[in-house]
Simulated scan of single mutants.
Amino acid sequence: MQISLLQCQSSRDVAQNLQFIESQLDLLPRVAGEEQLVVLPECCLLFGGHESQQGEYLLNCGSEESPLKSAMSDLAKKFNVYLVAGTIPVLAEDKRVYSRTYLFDSAGKVLGNYDKLHLFDVDVSDGTKEYRESDTFCPGDKISVIDTPFGKLGLAICYDLRFPDLFRAMREAGAELIALPAAFTKVTGAAHWQPLIQARAIETQCFILAAAQWGQHNRGSRETWGQSMIVDPWGRVMAEKMSGCGWVQATLDRSELELIRQQMPVSEHNRFAPPQLQKIR
């Protein structure tokens, strides 16, 4: 199984962001005869300003079917890849926005989707200072674990990483790999990004595929940490890219995952009840 994460430095220019992703897919190093799973970061097509711009884009695009979703479907088909398509905004019933990631197969068909459960309402000692995603975004209400040729793939987004119950719930639902599109701030990423990813990998005994935004966005109004990384079920970093834009790649061996779970069956040993998702609005 060949896995490729794309680290981006996205802006508010949708066309420019889309052109960058397409150009990188055109250069994607591939192993002949192997299916390719590509993971893009959070907000890969629209990022860098206030979160309200996500909703403004939807209201101005004038289409029931999101042009961003269609563009991602077209890329998956054109480049013959399974694609975790970062995140795109989707209108919710209350006129807020779902931060949604889609999984497309290599024919551009949607295999499943996931709406970000945990919204980033925090204060951070950076240039932005205050983040209030719930002003714009609506939280999701389900977990997603999807059958793929690569194994059962769970989906999470950025701030979800801090909530181990979600990751345990995905493991209980059969997850073997977990894709994490993200845009961690530089401040929180420097402190917590790598240890959280390794902890989630070790706890769930899953491969974690964490694709990140990196660098300064829109002349420094936002700054993200980067360090896209692939971590195995033992917590080992298989591949990473600390800074800059480009690909992070690894070939995964599912037999290693099976051996780790057999030798240390933590899921069977756990004496606590499986987590239950609380419905909120």
Rank of each mutant, 00 (worst) to 15 (best):
M1E: 06
Q2E: 04
S4E: 00
L6R: 01
Q7N: 02
S11E: 10
R12N: 05
Q19N: 15
Q24E: 13
L25Y: 01
L27W: 00
L27C: 06
G33P: 02
E34M: 08
E34Y: 01
E34V: 00
Q36E: 01
L37D: 00
P41N: 11
E42L: 03
C43Q: 11
L45N: 07
E51P: 12
L58W: 14
L59I: 00
L59N: 11
A71V: 07
F79M: 00
Y82S: 02
V84L: 05
T101K: 04
D105R: 07
G112P: 04
N113M: 11
D115H: 07
L117R: 07
L119G: 06
F120R: 13
V122S: 14
D126T: 03
E133A: 14
F137S: 08
P139D: 10
G140D: 07
D141K: 08
K142A: 11
D147Q: 12
L153A: 04
L155V: 09
C158S: 13
Y159A: 09
Y159K: 06
D160S: 08
D160Q: 05
D165H: 13
R168A: 07
G174P: 12
A175R: 12
T185C: 12
T185L: 11
T188E: 15
H192N: 14
W193T: 02
A201Q: 04
Q205A: 02
F207I: 05
A210C: 03
W214E: 13
G215L: 03
Q227S: 14
S228H: 03
M229K: 04
M229W: 00
V237F: 04
V237D: 03
V237N: 04
E240P: 00
C245D: 13
Q262T: 15
Q263D: 06
M264Q: 12
H269G: 04
A273Y: 06
P274G: 15
Q276P: 10
Q276H: 15
Q278H: 06
